[in-house]
């Protein structure tokens, strides 16, 4: 009976069509289709959300661009009395604080990744890795609180006077040691982006085939030489990707920076001085903007921040993706 049916199904075209006809009428795949399109909608919804975000913010900030023109990007003046709005001092603040953060965080993060991945036994690597990962879980408002009440006073009493004594001739380290300011923001951001950079770097190192390391050791390299030749050199582009990802995180960080950077819309060379980032001006003024133009200008600051972080993150993801794909292909 069964074999007959199978024969009919598979070997006689006419009969198989006959059988499939009633099946088609009560489409068993109807549920599948509905499910599929629901999921597809949800997934494309994310793309749509991203596009809507760009569109809406662009539309909201348009009055600022049309009224202020290029001065928006070339002026460092931000004054709601005179209705002058320029983004330059915030760009400066954002760039300097983020670069400081990266400069502090990169050596530590890469060192951590090397140690935990390549050298430490697992009984040590696991708890240490956990402690560093947990840094990423602390809410940024808690970082801000700690930065304002603990880190800033520490910098003021112990670090800044020393820097003033020894490097006071250097323009980066002049001015009153207030604690809060660019330096404090940089250190705090460095702590916050360390887990990001080290996690990504560890992923990259993990993707490097073991044979590279064995080859280096087999040629008589010491452990450090092995790390340098097989891990760091091979992983360089991946590390760069991880660093750019960390940079992206630092650029957009809002609360912690707002609480420790001092919030003065001015450009100063010294790292002791207060500053303002694109994110912090938004946190400070958005809810209480006096005029429509100020609101539009603030939104334009947000748009600038948004675009910068999109570009930075795209580059970073692309590099990391390329690197990981490269290793998989090379195996």
């Amino acid at each position: 009976m069964v074999t007959e049916l199978v024969e009919k199904l598979f070997f006689t075209r006419e009969i198989s069509e006959e059988i499939s006809l009633p099946l088609k009428k009560r489409d068993v795949h109807f549920g599948d289709k509905v499910f599929y399109y629901l999921l597809k909608g949800a997934s494309w919804g994310i793309v749509f959300l991203l596009l809507a975000m760009v569109g809406l913010i662009l539309k909201m900030s348009w009055p600022a661009f049309s009224t202020l023109g290029w001065t928006f990007f070339t002026s460092a003046e931000w004054n709601s009395w005179t209705q002058e709005f320029g983004v330059l001092s915030f760009i400066y603040g954002t760039v300097i604080s983020s670069l400081l953060a990266v400069a502090f965080a990169v050596p530590v993060s890469v060192g951590v990744a090397l140690f935990l991945n390549e050298l430490a036994p697992s009984w040590l690597a696991r708890p240490l890795g956990f402690l560093i990962e947990m840094l990423a879980a602390i809410p940024s408002i808690v970082y801000g609180l700690w930065g304002l009440f603990v880190l800033a006073p520490l910098l003021r009493t112990y670090v800044q006077p020393v820097l003033l004594d020894y490097f006071g001739w250097f323009p980066l380290f002049q001015g009153p040691p207030l604690g809060v300011g660019m330096l404090c923001a940089g250190v705090l951001l460095a702590i916050m982006i360390t887990p990001t950079i080290s996690a990504m770097t560890r992923e990259v190192f993990k993707a490097i085939p073991v044979s590279h390391r064995e080859a280096a050791l087999g040629l008589g390299a010491t452990r450090w030489e092995m790390l340098k030749l097989a891990v760091l050199k091979t992983g360089t582009s991946g590390i760069i990707g991880a660093v750019i990802l960390g940079l992206g995180r630092a650029l957009g960080e809002t609360m912690a920076v707002t609480m420790v950077i001092g919030n003065k819309s001015e450009i100063h060379l010294s790292l002791f001085e207060s500053g303002q980032t694109m994110a912090s001006i938004l946190a400070n003024q958005y809810a209480e903007a006096d005029s429509d133009l100020q609101l539009a200008a603030l939104t334009a600051v947000g748009l600038t921040l948004f675009m910068v972080s999109l570009i930075i993150n795209s580059i970073a993801r692309f590099i990391v993706w390329k690197v990981e794909k490269g290793f998989k292909g090379g195996k």
Partner: peptide, 10 residues
């Protein structure tokens, strides 16, 4: 990776 403050503006 969109900064959360930008989500606020949106």
């Amino acid at each position: 990776s969109v900064p959360s403050i930008v989500v606020g503006i949106f």
